[in-house]
Computed example of a mutant assay.
Amino acid sequence: MTHKYNITGMTCEGCKASVEKYLKKVDHITEVKVDLEKGAAELTMDSHVDTATLNKALPDKYTISAAHEKQVFNTENTVGMPAEESKLKQLKPLLLIIFYISAASILLHYNNWGWSAFMLDFMGLFYIVFSFFKMLDLKGFPESFSMYDPLAKRISAYGKVYPFIETALGLMFLMRFEITIALVVTLVVLGITTIGVTRTLLDKKAIQCACLGTALKLPMTEATFIENFIMIVMAILMLINML
């Protein structure tokens, strides 16, 4: 008999090979087929093996669940928990980071409020913080990023330099240096990424978001699209204001 499963935590061909290796060692599993892009697997068994046993066979960075289960991005025991609640827990680090960036940007100008200054500091802090998490794993980030970014898929070097591009853009916004160039580059790089994110969401692929690098396991959800969309809208508003 063959069963279909969702697998989270895979970011590269090495991950795929690792998952296949460990699953093939499980008793009663006769064949393993893993699809990296879809985050899915087909397991052929001569006797049923429950998901708890399959998860124990895999390293902690991977999570396997039956394809019919709604908790596609489940990384902990959430039996009986609504899918939306589970997704919210997954996105908690991202939401907290955006909250702190917003709060810091507001506090910097609470005595002398100005929307332009707020947006520049928000964008600058956004890039600096997000690039920091990408810097934690410069080797693993490009592989994860290329899973959905169209340009990173075609040009591997782009994924390698992307964290440094973000750092440079962050400094340019915070230092008010060549803001027009920084805004145009923001529209280009985030526009490309947003296209890839949109395709991934429409295809309902279960992959890991690389917006915070590989240090935090974040599912690719609508939140990724929204954060990029906010930055793009801010960049457009700033460019219009500068005309």
Rank of each mutant, 00 (worst) to 15 (best):
R154L: 05
T194S: 14
K139V: 12
F145I: 02
T186M: 15
V161L: 11
L187G: 12
F173D: 09
P163R: 05
G159H: 10
K160S: 07
D137H: 07
R199G: 06
K160C: 04
I181S: 09
V197E: 06
V189F: 15
P142S: 01
S146I: 13
K139H: 06
K160R: 13
E143F: 13
F177Y: 15
G159I: 13
S156L: 11
A152S: 13
K134W: 10
L174P: 07
Y158D: 10
V161K: 01
A182Y: 09
T180R: 09
M175V: 08
R154F: 00
L171Y: 12
F145D: 02
K139G: 00
I195M: 12
M172P: 06
L190P: 00
F130R: 05
Y158W: 15
T200D: 06
S156M: 07
F133Y: 11
L174D: 05
F133Q: 03
R154H: 00
V197A: 02
V197Y: 01
T193R: 00
F164T: 04
E178D: 12
F133M: 04
L201S: 00
A157D: 03
L151Q: 00
F141G: 02
Y162K: 09
P142H: 01
T186L: 14
F133G: 02
G196W: 00
R176N: 15
Y162I: 10
M172W: 09
T180W: 03
A152Y: 09
P163A: 05
V188C: 10
R199I: 12
S146M: 11
L190E: 01
T180E: 14
L136A: 07
V189Q: 11
K153I: 08
L171S: 12
P142T: 02
M175S: 13
L169Q: 08
L171A: 14
L187V: 05
M147P: 01
F130Y: 15
G140T: 12
T180Y: 04
E178S: 11
A168P: 01
I165D: 08
I179V: 15
A182N: 08
L174E: 06
M175E: 03
P150S: 09
T200F: 08
K160F: 07
V188W: 07
G140Q: 14
A157P: 00
K153N: 04
V189D: 06
F141Q: 06
P150C: 10
L138M: 15
R199Y: 07
M175K: 02
L183G: 05
D137W: 03
V161H: 03
S146F: 12
E178Y: 13
F177S: 15
V189S: 13
G191F: 04
L138Q: 09
I192V: 15
A168Q: 01
L138R: 13
D137R: 05
G140E: 13
F145Y: 12
V161S: 04
Y158C: 11
T200N: 10
T194I: 13
L136P: 02
T193C: 11
